[in-house]
Every structure is written in C-alpha cells, then in structure tokens.
Design a binder for these strands. Structure first.
Lengths: 226, 226
DNA sequence: TCAGTGCCTTGATCCAGATCAACGAGGAAA
DNA sequence: TTTCCTCGTTGATCTGGATCAAGGCACTGA
C-alpha cells in the first residue's frame, strides 16, 4: 500500500526518478504546505528547516538587502529550492517570495541530510539536480557579463516557452519589477527595452507577452547562449 | 596495500572525506596529468571526458565566445571542475585555461556517472561540493547585480586571503585582464579602480597586492555580501 | 644592443542604463 | 462617487564604465 503523498513526490524533478522504496521513506517525512501569493516562504540569513519542492505555483528567489533586492531566479512546479543550504546546514543566501498561490512539499533539512548518506539513488539525483541548476547559473553569469539588456530580455522571453518557432503567448513569471532585477536592469529600462523589442514582434499586455515569431527573437540572441 | 594514487585523492575536497574502499575504487580509474601555464584543458562546447581535480596549480573558467570571454571563476589546488557537465553528460558551458603549471587528477566522466549510482559516500559528497559551489555562484550574481566596480573589487581582494584584519600581501590568481572579466569590468576600468582603492590602502606591484588594513577594505563592502 | 611583442596604464570621449520626476491606469476601501 | 494605493510608463538628465587611441615597461630573441 503506497503512501498517499507518493503521487506528489512523483511530480518533483528531484524525486520523480527514485525507486519506490526511497519514495516511501521520503513520503514519511514530508509535509504538504499551502502558501499564498506574495508570502515570504523564508528569508535570507535564516537557518534552513526545509527544502521546498513546488507542486503548484512558484516563487521568486531574491538576494541582497531590502530595497536592493536582486532577483536570482524564478521557480515553478516540479522544481525545488534550498537544496544547497539544507545539505550544508548553512544559512540561506536568498529569500523566496511567492509569485502565486500554490502548494509546496516541505522536506525537513535534517532528515534530508540523514537520508542523503544512506540512499544512493537520492544522493545521485541531488547531485544531478544541483548540476543542472549550476548550468543555469553559469549561463546567467555569462549572459550578464557579455550581453546588453535587449539581448538578455530576448533570451529570457525565449527561455520562458518550450515553443521553438512561430507565434506564442506567454505569461511572465512575476511582476515586471521582478523580471527587471532578474535581468539585472531597472523597471524603467525594462519598460523601454520592451518597447524596442516591439520592432521584433513582441507585444505586451499586462503580464502576458505575445511573440509573433520565436525564431525572430532567437536570432537576436548570440549563438553562445542559445 | 593502498593504491599509490590514494594520497593524491586525499588532497581533493571532493574525495578527501570518502572511506578507504571508495578511494581505492576511484584510484583505479583516475590518471594524473601535468599541464603547463596558459594551456587550455578543455573548451566550451566539447563533450566532457573527464572531471579535473587540481593537485597543484590552477585554472580560470571562461565562458562565452572568443574575444568576448567572461571569466567565471578561478580554481586552485584541492578544487574540482566540470562535475556538473560530467554528471549530466552534457557539453561544457565553459573553457578552462591554466593560470600556472600544475598537475590535475583526471576522473573519466563515464566512470564517474557509473560510480555515483553505486557509491553513497561519493554521491553525497558530490552533492555537497556542488552545493558549496552553488553558493559561490549565487554570491557572484547578487554582487554583480547590486554593487559597483569598486565594491566588487574590494570584496574580491578580501576574499583572496584568509586574513581578517591588519595588513596582508597577496598574489592575484591570474592576469589583470582575467581578474577584470571575473569582476565583470574591462582591464582599463580595473586599472582605474585599483587606483581609486589606493585611498583605502591598496598598493599594487605586478601581480602582488599589498593591503594596508583588511578591515578598512571590508568596511567598503556592504554588509550583505561580507 | 635593439626591435618585437605582451601586458598594463593613462587620457579623451561616448553611450547604455541609472536616476529623478511626473503622470496615467487600474483596484480597493469608504 | 472620491481618495488612496501600487504598478507601470514616459521624459529629461546624469554617470559609471566602455571604447578608442597612445604610450610605458618588462621580457624575449637575434
């Protein structure tokens, strides 16, 4: 008889591929938590109690002092945050604010630290998930250091959809303000840059963006970061 | 009877804490490789054959197209690079150029992918090493997005020494050119910024830097990233 | 010894994006 | 309705760092 929370675990990248036995063990210790839009799930500097895996809805990871907040990345369903801090038992380097209502699985940090030394499948999967995320961060660093605002915005938009070509309409993963810091620019600049991209077939309406032709935008992004 | 390469493995953060049995297994498959200054160990876009762990000397990790190279980070003795690409079997996102003569242990990527699914200690340690590195990258992103060149340089210098207070003399981990891109600025700007820091007790002489008072520099860096 | 070549510094100018300052368009509360 | 908000846009101006253009200095090799 499977644990009732196992189906939730299967929706999370970190756990999806694990064998049933591992899932049962983990299911014993996780809890499901609802959160509402704009709520802070945790703040920079706190000691990690949980790893958060999103079943529904998402958050924005923010670093830096108040008012000087730098958006690091957006996270949505199936993704997990705080694995690094939880594994090492070190204070968070970032805060997380919900960008919508949703639900997250909370895995107690202590338990996870214990399990990772006992369960190969879990440990290996953690390493793989961290590796994948490492690559995302590297791309971001490369991009900030070598490309201008318009290119970065174009790349960001393209990365928000699976579609490779043709027209799409997508919803921004947060407020324009947040998108702006994610891109390392100010809201005013985002506004103006968005206007420039109109020449490349990008129309905005609130938080939904219509791209006339994904290829057209992709062409703007230099080959190295595609 | 221990394998002759085990002592080398013990100098690497990734392996140091592993049990003897794991070390023996790994020692069977690693090779020791010398490299000389300015040599490229691997280039962006290639398929990963090895993870590189530095026994002596180090490299600079570079991303982006030629001429537009962004220094991501410097690596030295005891550190390992390419773990993420090797684990996932995806092309490198960066190149590595040696910043000195040295020796590295090469761990075949395929073997590692195999071992990580069998050896808990290794898998768990990979996850921890990746976690630690994740935090380094997050700090870098936060810093680029929220601080000016002078602050970033001050922080970088302070991070190059263990000393917490008083005077130090340290050696830069690469050419000034490279330090500049690591900081996300141009060599000319580094030169000028270094001059500004003279008012804060920083003197340069080739690739050695004398800091009159570490506290004085630390004070320049805003609290959040200290 | 002198040319050739990298690496770094300095000076002058330029520009992308920041900053400062209004202002309009929703939404919520009264 | 009006009165606040908060979010986003727009315009004018400023500025940190980039870019362009000369040198200077140390090393190498003939």
């Amino acid at each position: 008889m499977a644990h009732p929370r196992v189906p939730f675990l299967k929706k999370i990248g970190l756990f999806a591929s694990l064998p049933e036995t591992s899932l049962e063990t983990i299911a014993e210790v996780v809890g499901l938590q609802r959160f509402s839009n704009h709520a802070y799930l945790f703040r920079e500097g706190e000691e990690p109690d949980f790893v958060y895996s999103f079943v529904e809805g998402g958050v924005v990871l923010l670093g830096g002092a108040d008012g000087q907040e730098a958006v690091i990345e957006f996270f949505g369903p199936g993704e997990s945050v705080l694995l690094p801090a939880a594994l090492l038992g070190l204070p968070y380097l970032a805060s997380a604010r919900a960008t919508s209502d949703g639900q997250a699985l909370l895995i107690p940090a202590g338990k996870l630290r214990q399990l990772i030394d006992q369960d190969v499948a879990l440990a290996a999967q953690c390493a793989r998930v961290l590796s994948r995320h490492w690559r995302v961060l590297i791309s971001q660093i490369k991009e900030i250091k070598t490309h201008g605002a318009a290119e970065r915005l174009a790349h960001f938009l393209v990365s928000q959809t699976e579609t490779q070509a043709g027209p799409v309409t997508l919803t921004l993963p947060g407020m324009k303000k947040e998108i702006a810091t994610r891109l390392g620019i100010k809201p005013e600049t985002l506004s103006r840059t968005l206007k420039k991209l109109r020449d490349y077939g990008v129309e905005t309406e609130g938080d939904s963006v219509r791209i006339a032709s994904v290829e057209r935008l992709t062409a703007l992004v230099s080959p190295a970061i595609r």
